[in-house]
Write a protein that binds this DNA or RNA. Structure first.
Length: 275
DNA sequence: GTGCCTGTTACCTC
DNA sequence: AGAGGTAACAGGCA
């Protein structure tokens, strides 16, 4: 659920909420396995009294630069942050909370418990495994071409692989491939120069649109994405293929199909995206 | 109730 | 290298 645009929206809201410069007085861990590598006791001891210096995003990770360490948070499927101003009972799906020196509480909810927090003085150990930032100037047509030419696997799972490009997930990959008119199972190395240019443009475009639309919220369920302020995203209204199977392609009118590619639900237009 | 589905990633085997 | 399966989990849905 949270891909680059959703994580970017969350990071921006946390910054707007003036979370930088605030000190963490103490923490509570409700679900041990949300904390990677440390026990809950170690985590709470280590994070207490550190100040949040900066909040950034790298791929789908939230990056909190603290006084001494860096806190990396990966939301996986259902992780979300909430900010409350006074003491409150733990929500059923609340896994971690940080008590701040200005009396606010930063709460982490994660229904499916896949989300992970890493508190470490060596964040590069994790972040260095990530590939290019697709909205950075390093992500050029030629960089994409180099990645694609080196791999003979299907284009969709390659785009989902965070060690090459960091931030794409199932929704935005399906949308980018539709925009570029490329079949999800094409071999990456088979793409022609012009297809690579189109794909590059499509990736940048769908992610930029996603950020401008403050992310995608598909359903009304609590498991769905919503930002720190509780707002839903708007990008679901701009989707062209994701979960549109059975509907007409907005470009050619053919019926959008759904199939499984690399174990992931995959939506495409058989007419616009021939194999 | 049952079984299948889900937006992520790690790990395993072939 | 890459494909395919499983697992971590909880809940929505038919």
């Amino acid at each position: 659920m949270p891909e680059l645009p959703e994580v970017e929206t969350i990071v921006r809201e946390l910054r707007e909420a003036a979370l930088t410069g605030v000190r963490i007085s103490h923490a509570i861990v409700f679900w041990q396995r949300s904390i990677s590598e440390l026990t809950d006791t170690q985590f709470c001891q280590k994070i207490a009294s550190q100040t949040i210096k900066e909040i950034q995003r790298r791929g789908k990770f939230l990056v909190f630069r603290l006084t001494r360490d860096t806190l990396l948070v990966h939301l996986r499927m259902t992780g979300k942050f909430m900010l409350t101003h006074e003491e409150c009972a733990a929500h059923a799906h609340e896994r971690v909370r940080l008590y701040l020196s200005d009396r606010r509480i930063l709460r982490f909810e994660d229904q499916r418990k896949f989300g992970k927090w890493y508190l470490t003085s060596h964040p590069e150990r994790i972040l260095d495994n990530l590939g290019l930032e697709p909205l950075s100037k390093e992500f050029t047509v030629s960089a994409l071409k180099t990645i694609l030419s080196r791999h003979h696997r299907q284009i969709k799972p390659l785009l989902l692989d965070q060690k090459y490009i960091a931030g794409l997930g199932n929704i935005y990959v399906d949308e980018a491939l539709w925009a570029a008119k490329i079949h999800p199972q094409r071999s990456a190395s088979s793409l022609k120069e012009q297809e690579i240019r189109h794909l590059h443009h499509a990736i940048v475009d769908v992610l930029t649109q996603g950020v401008e639309n403050t992310g995608t919220s598909l359903g009304a369920a609590r498991a769905n994405y919503f930002s720190v302020s509780g707002r839903r995203g708007n990008h679901q209204n701009a989707l062209n293929v994701f979960r549109k199977d059975g509907l007409s392609c907005t470009r050619c009118g053919s019926l959008i199909k759904k199939m499984i590619v690399a174990q992931r639900g995959t939506h495409y237009c058989p007419n616009c995206q021939p194999f």
